[in-house]
């Protein structure tokens, strides 16, 4: 318990996590506001309110990576390990704090976006959270942010450098996952298993067809069900995080 308090103090006593959280919220909600205000002609579906969650996700992953890499950058990781020489317990405490916080930011971003869409969209007849699918589209963002933060923590602890960790995350999510589809023949099959695209299927997949015109829904990604997709994404995050725990334990600090 005390180690959770320690990580909380560490996180909130510097400014960058605050900026990252504000940016994640602002980007997601702000872009949704633009979309909602310009949604003409048809009723706005619930999914329409959460398209923009990926922007917030990248920012929150940067925050999570920073939570580890700045400790290496400024040498405080040594003090951390002097205070808790088993190393694993402070890293787990950090993960609990950062993942919970990220999930909260995710929920704030998605419900904020949804609430704002209610106010700005012309036709909100389809915007009510009336089915399990609708709830998944909105509340699922919290889960994806949490899992993404765990993945970023693992990458940060493995790479130990801010620039390296952030580049890996952004290049993978924004470039590699899209470029891979260009590979002839097998590209599409590989792309179906790319973690960030699969995570999107959890949020946007299998929507209630009644609110969407024919052929206008998001492309179906992957072969897993929405919840299977989340399990896949969270599983990858957990695996990388656990590898990082083992490496951190064995490596010289």
């Amino acid at each position: 318990m005390t180690l959770l308090a320690v990580e909380r103090i560490k996180l909130f006593s510097t400014r960058s996590p605050w900026w990252c959280m504000l940016l994640a919220l602002g980007l997601t909600v702000g872009l949704t506001a633009i979309i909602a205000a310009n949604w003409d002609g048809s009723p706005m579906p619930v999914m329409g309110a959460v398209f923009t969650h990926t922007f917030g996700l990248y920012v929150i992953m940067v925050m999570a990576a920073l939570a580890v890499t700045t400790e290496y950058r400024f040498g405080t990781i040594k003090s951390t390990f002097q205070a808790a020489p088993d190393r694993t317990s402070p890293m787990i405490a950090k993960a609990v704090v950062v993942v919970l916080l990220s999930a909260l930011v995710g929920l704030a971003a998605s419900f904020g976006s949804w609430g704002l869409s209610w106010l700005l969209a012309d036709d909100t007849s389809q915007l009510a959270l009336s089915s399990g699918n609708d709830w998944r589209h909105v509340a699922g963002v919290g889960l994806v942010f949490g899992a993404g933060a765990l993945l970023a923590l693992g990458i940060g602890a493995l790479v130990r450098q801010t620039a390296g960790a952030v580049s890996i995350i952004l290049v993978f999510a924004l470039v590699l996952e899209n470029v891979v589809g260009l590979i002839p023949n097998i590209g599409d099959d590989i792309q179906n298993w790319m973690p960030f695209l699969v995570a999107q299927k959890f949020i946007l997949g299998d929507p209630d067809p009644s609110g969407i015109p024919d052929g206008a829904g998001p492309p179906a990604i992957g072969e897993l069900s929405p919840w299977g997709s989340f399990a896949y994404f969270a599983g990858i995050a957990l695996a990388i995080y656990i590898i990082s725990l083992v490496v951190v334990k064995r490596r010289d600090a």
Binding site: I9, S13, T70, T76
Partner: peptide
Amino acid sequence: KWVHPNRSARAHLQW
């Protein structure tokens, strides 16, 4: 120099 530069001296000792 093993201190986060943006953290106050007090917060550093506190954690």
